[in-house]
Design a binder for these strands. Structure first.
Lengths: 143, 143
DNA sequence: TTTTCATTTCGGAATCATTCCAGTTTGGGA
DNA sequence: TCCCAAACTGGAATGATTCCGAAATGAAAA
C-alpha cells in the first residue's frame, strides 16, 4: 500500500485531472516528505524548487483537489497549519506537545494510552476521538 | 459528574482565579449551552446579555485560562471556530458533515463505525484519532 | 473601610492560515 | 494546430485568534 509518485500521478489521470508541472512538483513534495506530514507552506517551498512557477494559491487549491479526490488526507489542527498525509490506511496520529512532530501508529489492537506508551514510547496526555459523518436528522433530509 | 455553574465557580476560587462579572457570564454561557459545544463567538454573544461589558478578547483569554486550569476542554477544528466542552469525561465527538452539530457519544464498548451507527443513528464517514502527548525524544530532553 | 497591586479587562491593531477573485495561461482532446 | 475547460497567478479579503499598552477592579492586607 506504499504510495509512490507514479501511483499518485496515475490516480490523477484516472480522475480526469490534468497533469501540470505544478501538480508534479506538489506530488513530489508530498511523497518525499511523507513522514513529516507536511503542511501547505512546506509543500509550497519544496514545490518551488522543482517547478519554476508555483503560487501558494495553487498549492492550496491543489491540496484541496487531491483531498476531494481521495489521493491524500487532510489532518486538521488548531494553532498549527493543516497537514497532509499520503498514507490513507487506518492509523492513529501521535502528536508531540513539545516538538509538534506527528508520528504514525499503525492500527492498534488496543487504543489504551498505556499500551501505546509501552509499544511506541509515546506518552499520551490527551486523546481526541472524532468521528465525522451524518447525523440522524441530516440523513432524513434530502439534498 | 454533571458540571454545574457553582461547580465551575468554586473551581475558579480553588485555582486562585478571580471571580469577575465577565467570568460569571462566560461560565453561564458555557453551562447553559453545553450541548451545543459553543464556540467563542456564541459564548461572547451570550455573555454579553448577562454582563454589561465583555469584550471578545476577554472571552478568548478566559476560555484559554479555563482550559489551562482544566475547567473545560477545547475541541479544535479546521474551517470552524474552536468549540468548548464542559464535559471532561471520556467521550467521542460525532460531528455532522452537513449541519456541523456535534454530538456526544459516551465512551463506547466498541469504536467500530458500524456499531456507532447502529446505536446512535450517526453514519460515520471519516474517523480522526489523535493522541497528543510527548514523543520519545522530547521525553529525554530536559525542559 | 481603605489601600494596594497583581490580575483582569478593553479595544484596536496585528497575525496567520486559508479562500476568493478576476484575469491569464495551458494541458490535452478534437 | 486549434480550442476551451481546467489550472494557475498574485493580490486582496476573510475570519479566527493573539498581542499590546493602558485602564479598571477583585480581594487580600492594613
Amino acid at each position: 500500500m506504499k504510495k509512490t509518485k507514479e501511483n499518485l500521478i496515475s490516480q490523477l489521470r484516472e480522475k480526469g485531472l490534468k497533469v501540470t508541472p505544478q501538480r508534479l512538483a506538489i506530488v513530489d513534495a508530498l511523497v518525499e516528505n511523507r513522514y513529516e506530514h507536511p503542511g501547505a507552506t512546506l509543500i509550497f517551498n519544496e514545490a518551488r524548487k522543482k517547478a519554476k512557477r508555483v503560487s501558494l494559491s495553487t498549492v492550496y487549491a491543489t491540496l484541496k483537489e487531491f483531498c476531494e479526490n481521495g489521493l491524500i488526507r487532510q489532518l486538521e489542527f488548531d494553532r498549527m497549519e493543516n497537514r497532509y498525509d499520503v498514507d490513507l490506511s487506518d492509523h492513529v496520529n501521535l502528536i508531540c506537545n513539545r516538538c509538534g512532530k506527528i508520528f504514525d501508529y499503525s492500527i492498534p489492537a488496543s487504543l489504551e494510552p498505556r499500551d501505546i506508551a509501552r509499544k511506541s514510547g509515546f506518552v499520551v496526555t490527551d486523546t481526541r476521538l472524532e468521528f465525522h459523518g451524518y447525523c440522524r436528522d441530516c440523513l432524513k433530509r434530502p439534498d
